[in-house]
Design a binder for these strands. Sequence first.
DNA 1: ATAGGGTTAG
Length: 627
Amino acid sequence: MSAIRTKLHHQLQTVTARIPVLNSTAATRGGVQPWNSRLRELANKSLFSEALSVYLQMLRSGASPNAFTFPFALKSSAVLSLPITGEQLHCQAIRTGCLLEPFVQTSLISMYCKCNFVDVARQVFDENPLSRKLTVCYNALIAGYALNLRTKDTVSLFCEMREFGVEINGVTLLGLVPVCGVAGNFGLGMCVHGCCLKFGLNLDFSVGNSLLSMYLRCGEIKTARKLFDELPGKGLITWNAMINGHAQNGLANDVLELYREMEASGIQPDPVTLVGVLSSCANLGAQEVGKEVERRIHACGFLANPFLNNALINMYSRCGNLVKSRQIFDRMPVKTVVSWTAIIGGYGMHGQGEVAVDLFDDMIRAGTIPDRAAFVSVLSACSHAGLTDKGLHYLDTMEQKFHLSPGAEHYSCVVDLLGRAGRLDEAHGLIRTMKAKPDGAVWGALLGACKIHRNVELAELAFERVVELEPTNIGYYVLLSNIYTDAGDSEGILRIRVMMRERKLKKDPGCSYVEFKGRVHLFVSGDRSHPQSKQIYEFLDELECKLKELDQNGMGVHSEKLAVAFGLLNTKEGAEIVVMKNLRICGDCHLFMKLVSKILPRREFIVRDPTRFHHFRNGVCSCKDYW
DNA sequence: ATAGGGTTAG
């Protein structure tokens, strides 16, 4: 921090030399008032860079800034995160004798906080005794500490405020919220909620919104819902907090429902709303809802919003519509690393690893610096497409060229990569020497590779580790059990079964989702609650009969494939995507789809299993390595 | 006339 301070100080001195010395004649010549109203106008319209250039024009014209000028200019440099400009303003406030004005003081503190110079803000706060009498100054600094997640400083300042008897208002409590949303600080959040009740601020519109997002960030969905229902006025931000909070907790179906509720309540969504909805569509494979959102984006004129475009690319990629996602990507005038990552991930998921890898190289040529997430997408593309050496090369590049230290999420891709290629010892060696702590996914990837290459000994070792890390993940028990099955080791199978019983682990019932006409239908194995389940089962029986004729091995049809039947039943009417979640990727599932496509050769449908999409057209699947 | 807070993508 002191190094940054020194650097800033140096810059401050150089710019101070360039600042024109203001004198009274200059000030009277121009008159500051018209400049101030122009500044206010621009700042109110959020045109902050324009506001700053107006400020510069004002200086050039010879007018002297006064106490009404600085808050606007400081807010502009805060929003644009321009600490150097902010320091210049600080310096000019000193020269013009405006520094001790409460409004200027508060704006300054806030500006330094927003530019991540909280300690400089603290200095400004400490240097002026007036600060300790003003709620607004405390509020600005508390919010600054909280945003930088400095829990201790945030809380001690809040306590000091109470000790000195400075008035606490809604904004004070709002400022505290960011540190409450961090895992482990939930207790603090409860205290803040308690304070809100104590000060009678809990029904304040903004405080309510803030508490809501705090609970959602902590994963306290039920508490959030209760608060939401109690809030007297629900505005755009209330709905946004709710929708995005649910989206981040992976509750995609609830998001779609909330979105409908929001529309019904007559509140128009903004880009922030739609980003959350699109991310849920991506997770559910709900392309129809996604398309509806896209139409809305066009209608509302949000087309230029980069957040929305990235969310659209992600949604179409994950829903298997690579043509659409590529179109949007190509049309984006400014592509960020997030845009590239979304499109690379899309191609990677579909087994088009070569395209993904080429795009990654294009990105680097275009001068975009990849971050850790971008490397995850390219490494996983390599592992899906079997581009072993390419993947190893990227892992190397990541460290050597971009100075990013790979995390467990990167190593799990590379272990998968080596494992699939049969280089099990190298994969094991990598785990032993990797710098990050191996997590369940890393050992799980090795276990999966042992299944492919039938290595029981290494599988047992990997299983031991993975079960230490994720003792309740049933998938790994099933995987080892299948390895024993392949090896004909009936004792092994029994051991796993006993272990699962001792740990009270039960296999979750298989379930699938189907999107149909903007609704996502959930099917659980053995469940007959769907209103159309009678027709679905009849259709399933019909399918099964035909399948038996074709299938000599007698694979049978499980009820967890209900969703597939439902999707096929409605294909004529537009069910586009059949999402098969939690469905084991085993031979019979693939065979099932193959047979279904023979029975229904003219239907076109897409099946998504947990790792990729399979597009069936005229009885043929587009995925090369599918059969 | 001027200050402090809450919701966004991979």
